[in-house]
């Protein structure tokens, strides 16, 4: 069974149709890159999969492990194994990162009928993952993302990904706002999480990120549809020729 099946998805935001029949199939272990110009609907797709309010699905369906994802609340999706790494992770003053991580992890485990993590096990796990991502301990004591640099915010997203162990990771413009060193650290973190059971959908405007996270498949989006799919070489082709050729194709 495919992990994620998006079939002929049509989505409106305030009367304007953003996705006009988008289809995408992702199997376990695969890394898919979705590329496209600004306004092609890449982020909309990621938001609809995660369950962000404000989007009106007017047609098509999304199946996750064979279940109707659109019927689930965002927290149910998260417990089922969907993880969206935000393009712009929000700052939550007054909620310590450590408290947030534990509350979220235990909420997901509870929803799956699993026991809550014991405090020592949890701390041990967080500390080892944080160390591998160069996240200092004092960052974990601060409010979620409060005063974090762009790179720190993205690393915090990857830290959560590593802790929650989702089966589908959607990385929305992970490279935005990152310099090359920060990008490398973040990409190393993502690569360490690649596994035969886990799939990733990497959304990006630029080919650069794909030098670090090498995809199995590349899809080009334009005007709310996938207009071309191919292997990793498609990304290089795009880098050379740009998106203009696809604007008309859509």
């Amino acid at each position: 069974m495919s992990l994620l099946e998006v079939k002929n998805l049509q989505v409106r935001v305030e009367e304007r149709e953003i996705l006009h029949g988008l289809s995408l199939t992702v199997n376990p272990g695969e890394v898919h890159a979705i590329m496209g110009p600004n306004g092609s609907g890449k982020s909309t797709l990621s938001h609809v999969i995660a369950g962000k309010p404000g989007y009106d699905v007017t047609g098509g369906e999304i199946l996750f492990k064979g279940e109707d994802l659109l019927e689930m609340s965002p927290d149910q999706r998260s417990a089922k194994g969907v993880f969206l790494a935000f393009q712009y992770p929000v700052e939550i003053p007054g909620v310590a990162t450590m408290t947030f991580l534990r509350t979220a992890l235990n909420a997901q485990r509870k929803a799956r009928g699993e026991s809550e993590f014991s405090t020592p096990d949890f701390l041990k796990k967080v500390r080892s993952v944080a160390a591998s991502l160069n996240i200092p301990q004092d960052m974990l004591r601060r409010g979620v993302n409060v005063g974090f640099s762009g790179g720190e915010k993205k690393r915090n997203e990857i830290l959560q990904m590593a802790l929650f162990e989702p089966s589908l990771c959607i990385l929305d413009e992970m490279d935005s706002g990152l310099d090359i060193d920060a990008l490398r650290v973040a990409a190393d973190g993502v690569n360490a999480l690649r596994s035969p059971e886990r799939a990733m959908v990497v959304i990006t405007h630029y080919q650069r990120l794909l030098n670090y996270i090498v995809p199995d498949f590349v899809h080009v989006m334009s005007k709310g549809r996938v207009v071309k799919s191919g292997g990793k070489e498609l990304a290089l082709e795009l880098e050379a020729s740009g998106y203009a050729q696809f604007e008309d194709a859509a």
Binding site: A50, G51, P74, D75, R77, F86, A104, L105, Q108, F164
Partner: peptide, 8 residues
């Protein structure tokens, strides 16, 4: 939404 996307 951020918190709900994390399972709360």
């Amino acid at each position: 939404f951020y918190l709900r996307a994390r399972g709360l």
